[in-house]
Design a protein around this nucleic acid. Structure first.
Length: 567
RNA sequence: CGGGGUGUGGCGCAGUUGGCUAGCGCGCCUGCCUUGGGAGCAGGAAGCCGAAGGUUCAAGUCCUUUCACCCCGACCA
């Protein structure tokens, strides 16, 4: 590609709207252009990178026998009512009506469509298992789109769905996808980690996320330094530090007047004890106006994703008003003892067998001391705590670490959740109708571009891996007024094209420095510089973007040199 | 949805207590010059100041409404 014919829409100015490196660089390199919040055009350069990612994904999925298809973006409301998600995904969906007032949404995902499709294309166990995938635009009206392609409202996703006669078969395909995903992210040259994950509102049991490690990630990953345990913090299990407070004499069980003591920090100061001696109480309310008081040791935090498995429906921390109506108190004095009997008690296992604890007394400005877990009407203990780096690995007991990650892939075993809702059946070997078992596998294709840049950039711009670079080599004539240079560049350009080496040729009438800057910003792995050294000694300077190393290469040796490097 | 902020040539911004022809940098166009890390000089094009309404002799500037975009939060009693 001659750059004189290309759109090189680069900028040295840092765009105001972009916060993180990948977003800034994608805009500056002219890869994307924003139309409106969270909606981007992929310019030729950005599209080239996108296509490279798609190609790798296709190759690896085809290898495990998945079949590509393309499903509609526009999906009828009825399909979503059937699965019960028309209401549930309320805020997330873009909706529209046709001229007859029929309602539709722009697909935020395709479980509904594929399950419906399944009922028409598969009838018998003989057709199973089968896996279908597509690379398609998805539409999600995110609460807050940000970071460019990282959290966009229109984005490209690879989604795949597998169908099975039983769980065992599903597990096998799940493992195939796991391996294919691993190969995909390895080929993309990303540093990533596979973690256990909560399956969220998509449902299902077993689930793994593929996380690209980056400071700017929106997820916290917990992993063990010693064994292979790794999990999204949303799901992570660990051993919290045990705490023995027998160093203190057993307090008399009584109420203490505690004016202005509201937070756990306030309590530490007031009682002169560490936060492990307190029971933290948080009141939640769900959409049915049921109340839940959650009890957890004062040094720990509640993990609401775990709570979502216990409390049904949407829920949130109760308002100050609710607190007053329910217990007649404001913040800070809530406690499990003497609380209104219609409030459900959800106790974290960190409370189990505790003694001599201090907690709210359900009375204004009052706490109660000398409480043991036996004093509270706890029917069952749950794991509702958030794991952090103070925890030990529950598998091997070693230290846990925490790191930020960008979720680029997620695989789920849906089992029969959607097939039951959509009555997706097949005829089994016995002749009876059975619900099909399903798996679901996603990759955020456009998000990968951002993630890859977050891992590979410097002050000058993007540093593409060979797998993703829009061009592998950039031929740069230092002075296009010198015929000798231009003639040689034309020649080597044709040679590279004939050798199927993806290259561009910066034949624009700019000064050399300008072209170097552009090349580095865009992130082309190799610059082939034809200048004074060529005129004097027939030597071409080849500069490697990743290492900043420069190689003097004889004009005749260029192809072998590049072939060696680009292998 | 709550809080904060910003809307002025393509981009980034300035524009005082309302006042005359709305500026600057980058980019763009023309010419000269230059060609190894985003050069220099000269000339030029490009704006109903986000939108609507109002106050005023006079509005980019004041008031009201509205839209868009950005940031923080939507969670620990």
């Amino acid at each position: 590609m001659r750059l004189s014919n290309y759109i090189v829409n680069t900028s040295k100015e840092i765009p105001k709207e972009a916060e993180i490196a990948s977003h800034q660089l994608m805009l500056r390199a002219g890869m994307i252009d924003k139309l409106t919040a969270g909606v981007y055009t992929f310019l030729p350069l950005g599209l080239k990178v996108l296509r490279k990612i798609e190609k790798i994904i296709r190759e690896e999925l085809d290898r495990i026998g998945a079949l590509e298809c393309l499903m509609p973006v526009i999906q009828p409301k009825e399909l979503w009512e059937q699965s019960g998600r028309w209401e549930k995904m309320n805020d997330l969906m873009f909706r529209l009506k046709d001229k007859n007032e029929r309602e539709y949404c722009l697909g935020p995902t395709h479980e509904e469509v594929i399950t419906d499709l399944f009922t028409r294309i598969v009838k018998s166990y003989k057709d199973l298992p089968v896996s279908l995938y597509q690379i398609q635009l998805k539409y999600r009206d995110e609460i807050r789109p940000r970071f460019g392609v990282m959290r966009a409202r229109e984005f490209v996703m690879k989604d795949a769905y597998s169908f099975h006669k039983d769980k065992k078969c599903l597990q096998k395909t799940y493992d195939d996808f796991y391996k294919a995903y691993t190969r995909i992210f390895e080929r993309l040259g990303l540093k990533f980690r596979v973690v256990e994950a909560d399956s969220g509102n998509i449902g299902g049991d077993s689930s793994h996320e593929f996380m690209v490690l980056a400071q700017t990630g929106e997820d916290d990953i917990i992993y063990c330094e010693n064994c292979n345990y790794a999990s999204n913090v949303e799901k992570a299990k660990g051993r919290f530090a045990l705490y023995d407070n027998s160093e203190f004499d057993l307090d008399e069980k009584k109420e203490i007047f505690t004016p202005n003591v509201k937070t756990i920090e306030d309590m530490e100061v007031f009682f002169k004890r560490s936060n492990k001696n307190f029971i933290k109480c948080v009141l939640y309310k769900n959409e049915k106006s049921e109340f839940f008081i959650c009890l957890i040791r004062g040094d720990l935090e509640i993990n609401e994703v775990k709570l979502a498995h216990i409390i049904s429906g949407e829920f949130a921390i109760a308002s100050e008003e609710d607190l007053i109506n329910l217990a007649g108190i404001g913040k800070g004095s809530l406690g499990p003892i003497g609380i209104d009997s219609k409030v459900n008690i959800i106790a974290d296992i960190s409370i189990k067998n505790t003694k001599n604890m201090i907690t709210g007394a359900n009375k204004k400005d009052t706490h109660i001391q000398g409480i043991s877990s036996d004093d509270i009407n706890i029917k069952k203990y749950y794991d509702i705590h958030k794991v952090d780096s103070t925890f030990k690995c529950s598998k091997c007991g070693e230290n846990l670490k925490i790191e930020r990650g960008i979720e680029v892939g997620h695989i789920f075993q849906l089992e029969d959740k959607y097939s039951k809702a959509s009555k997706a059946c097949f005829t089994g070997e016995s002749g009876k109708e059975l619900f099909v078992m399903m798996g679901c596998y996603g990759i955020g294709v456009t998000r990968i571009i951002g993630a890859a840049i977050e891992q590979n950039y410097d002050d000058n711009g993007i540093k593409w891996s060979l797998a993703l670079a829009p061009f592998l080599v950039n031929i740069i004539p230092v002075d296009i007024k010198k015929d000798e240079i231009v003639l040689f560049c034309d020649k080597i350009y044709n040679e590279l094209l004939n050798a199927n080496i993806e290259c561009c040729y910066d034949d624009r009438n700019f000064r050399a420095g300008f072209k170097f800057k552009d090349s580095d910003l865009i992130g082309i792995p190799y610059k082939l510089i034809v200048g004074n050294k060529f005129l004097e000694k027939g030597i071409i300077e080849i500069e490697e973007r990743s290492s900043n190393k420069k190689y003097d290469v004889d004009a005749k040796e260029i192809l072998p040199f590049l072939n060696e490097r680009l292998k």
